[in-house]
Design a protein around this nucleic acid. Structure first.
Lengths: 168, 168
DNA sequence: GCATTCTTTCATTTTTTTTTGAATCTTTAG
DNA sequence: CTAAAGATTCAAAAAAAAATGAAAGAATGC
């Protein structure tokens, strides 16, 4: 397989993985493109490489920057902006985990806490079933939060070596 | 807050969380509805509760069964089918992790392995950047696989107590 | 066998998400 | 200050995903 073909395959694979995780396919493709590019790229280069419009590049790049996965790079003597992705995938993983915690897990925890306050009769099976479900979900979500906090702080070797020891 | 209102809020929250994770909102709402229902429900009851069509209930229920989150229940003397969701959220988490591993992680691992075989000059920065990226992603993905395997086999208390010890 | 009840399918419609590209805004060099 | 290069915005269009509902398919009991 040739390099260019492999890059294309990787970009496609990264894009489809992303859609399965609720992430815009194009955003993931831009990310993939930058991941395999040794140099920072301009908006124009990205437009050409992925055959998408200027506006699309701009919006998805903003989103990637917002997620903390891409940064703007200014080159000496160049007027335009360039973009570069964090290449260390463990760092990327931690960053995504942190963001998803902030954006999704924390709001859900708030809702779950407020839903514990429902009024009702403890003997009513509907009430019992509901409060038990909420408590169960809340407990698992709280534990997930701890897991993410651990992951967020760990070095890759640390984290997985520890899991490995547990596994043994 | 009244029970019915709380159930509705939970169903909505579960639905929006799901869309952020690339899962059909209605499928998640059906799941949420069954999670907070003490009794197994018929297709008709689900249709009414969520105000969706028969076909929609059928398709999403099939998908939930496929994910191993819901099962068919046959009641004595009743001709129609009923549906019931696994209530233990830790079991649900493990099941989802197993399925996502099978459906997403394993195919990606295959692609990443095949992409290591790209031909090229080790001094070419584009080649170097690409193979390094692939190796890095592959290593993290392999470790993620191990993590999922651990989670899949663990009791909730086990898993999180161990993480907790690591955290200290 | 056949009528009834219930389930499944899938072409069509509806809704949601994503993309485009022209207009506008910003920055910089001269 | 002004013109050009570049970046951003967002209404409209296109594409993708999800929902509907009528028709077809099973299962059941008489």
């Amino acid at each position: 397989m040739k390099l260019e073909e492999a890059k294309q395959q990787f970009i496609q694979a990264w894009g489809s993985l992303a859609t399965q995780w609720g992430i815009n396919r194009t955003m993931a493709q831009v990310h993939a493109l930058l991941l395999v590019s040794p140099e920072a790229m301009s908006a124009e280069e990205v437009m050409e490489a992925l055959d998408i419009s200027r506006g699309n590049v701009n919006m998805n790049m903003r989103e990637l920057i917002d997620w903390g996965l891409v940064e703007r790079v200014y080159k000496q003597g160049e007027r335009k902006e360039f973009f570069s992705a964090e290449k260390d995938i463990w760092k990327v993983t931690r960053q995504v985990a942190r963001e998803r915690k902030r954006r999704e897990l924390e709001p859900v925890l708030k809702v779950l806490e407020s839903l514990q306050k429902v009024e009702g009769d403890k003997k009513d099976p509907a009430y019992k079933s509901f409060t038990e479900a909420m408590q169960g979900i809340h407990r698992v979500a709280k534990n997930a939060e701890k897991g993410i906090d651990l992951l967020s702080k760990s070095e890759e070797s640390m984290f997985f070596n520890l899991l490995l020891k547990i596994l043994k």
